[in-house]
């Protein structure tokens, strides 16, 4: 799927394209990210948080955007995930982050999503969460998960 990877001893960077509208594809990137992080020996809780964050991001891109990209950076102290898309953008971010607020179509709801939980889940499973959006251009999410914290049960 045109993924680009650069790996060194303490740094790993991967980019994965995500096509808008393709519901069959949603979840593939999170599966790959999970495999990469597990392979690097990253703590299970951190892997799970990263996988959940990526999966919800994929669902958002597939549901609303024309095209997107998910980037994974692994550093010694943290895992960083960025989800960028070209799409309609979000006019009111405060509203979009509110639990239960959604503009989802029936198709999205049939998939078991679209209940206004996605951005909430992404924020809750991140240690640091940034969101910015330009209406008519797209949305950019950046999530950081601290590896140290995740090691505490």
């Amino acid at each position: 799927m045109g993924a680009v990877s650069v790996c060194e001893q303490h740094l790993c960077e991967h980019s994965f394209p995500v096509n808008g509208g393709n519901f069959d594809e949603a979840g593939r990137v999170s599966g790959k990210i999970k495999t990469i992080l597990k392979g690097m020996g990253i703590n299970n809780d951190v892997v799970r948080m990263a996988a959940v964050i990526t999966y919800e991001s994929e669902i958002n891109i597939v549901s609303y955007a024309r095209h997107g990209m998910i980037r994974l950076h692994v550093l010694p102290e943290h895992v960083e995930i960025e989800a960028m898309d070209e799409g309609p953008g979000i006019p009111d971010i405060r509203l979009a982050i509110q639990q239960g607020w959604s503009t989802a179509t029936d198709k999205i709801r049939e998939m078991g999503f679209g209940a206004g939980m996605g951005l909430n889940n992404i924020r809750n499973f991140s240690d640091i969460f940034h969101i910015s959006s330009d209406v008519g251009k797209g949305t950019r999410l950046k999530m950081i998960i601290h590896i140290q914290q995740g090691q505490d049960p």
């Binding site: 979840g27 599966g31 799970r48």
Partner: peptide, 13 residues
């Protein structure tokens, strides 16, 4: 729910 997203969700977790 019976669509493939159920399996993907289960796999993620």
């Amino acid at each position: 729910l019976t669509n493939p997203q159920v399996i993907r969700t289960a796999d993620v977790l």
